[in-house]
Design a protein around this nucleic acid. Structure first.
Length: 265
DNA sequence: ATGGTCGTTTCACGA
């Protein structure tokens, strides 16, 4: 079973690349972020023709997440209790959608960017991550044996090696102690970065800014992660970043991350 | 400190 995550940066402008990715890598479940599409705008027809069910949520040009699955799509949830604004109109801000696919609980996450460390959005980001942590703790207690994966664009670079040059982030987000602590709190719950052992650094990234030929110079960030619970991590047999997907005309600024799971025994 | 390039509900803003 192959589970992948990709910040697609507009699913409408890149649906051909999405479908090609699914075919190229034989992906069973794809978590998508930054769809920038309302539900009625989501290009589902070709995906359904390929055998995928689609669960999505989005309402504006910045956010929007989805899960595409050809191994079942059950118990879909939009957002999570405790998330800032949960339950208000448009409040999930289309940043989190969860579903059980082929016996695995998958959450597609688009963690708030934070903008600047002194911006209100930065505090919103920290509150959002803490709310996710608290919800995750509850999910693990309720279903300790259900493989759980929190996947997506975390907008946090946990280690200095995950940033092309720390000097460029002196007053920036993604690398602050608060963000890193919020990220590592998921490790304390027993989740782990299941892809890193198969994609060792340094200079291994999942995102490269469109500016200044950052991809061509491999000046990127590692901010997309698959964090798996114990029962999930135990089944991981491999992982890779499809760096090639970031190249050429019409690429997203993120590369897909693909994880291979052994079948349940 | 600023800029560079994308995508969108575009001559503005978020990433």
């Amino acid at each position: 079973m192959r589970i992948a995550t990709w910040n697609v940066n507009s699913v409408r402008s890149r649906i051909d690349r999405v479908e090609a990715l699914l075919r190229r890598h034989d992906i069973d479940v794809l978590a998508v972020q930054e769809t920038k599409a309302k539900d009625e705008q989501f290009p589902t027809m070709g995906l359904q023709a390929l055998g995928y069910e689609v669960a999505m949520v989005g309402y504006n040009q910045w956010n929007g997440v989805a899960i595409l699955s050809r191994v079942g799509l059950e118990d879909v949830k939009i957002g999570f209790p405790g998330m800032p604004g949960f339950g208000e109109p448009e409040a999930p801000e289309a940043r989190a959608i969860g579903a059980t696919c082929g016996g695995v609980r998958v959450w597609s996450l688009y963690v708030p960017n934070g903008r600047k460390p002194d911006d209100p959005h930065f505090h919103y980001k920290l509150r959002w991550l803490e709310a996710l942590r608290a919800s995750t703790e509850g999910w693990l207690q309720e279903s300790p044996n259900l493989p759980l994966a929190l996947v997506g664009d975390w907008n946090v670079a946990p280690f200095d090696d995950d940033v092309y040059d720390m000097k460029d982030f002196k007053n920036g987000t993604h690398v602050t102690p608060q963000e890193r602590a919020a990220f590592f709190a998921f490790q304390d719950l027993g989740l782990s970065d299941v892809a890193r052992p198969f994609t060792p650094g340094p200079d291994v990234y999942t995102y490269w800014d469109y500016f200044r030929k950052r991809f061509e110079r491999n000046r990127g960030l590692r901010i997309d992660f698959v964090l798996g619970s114990g029962p999930f991590a135990d089944r991981v047999t491999g992982a890779f970043i499809d760096t090639e997907e970031r190249s050429g005309e019409g690429a997203s600024d993120h590369a897909p991350l693909i994880v291979e799971l052994r079948e349940d025994q």
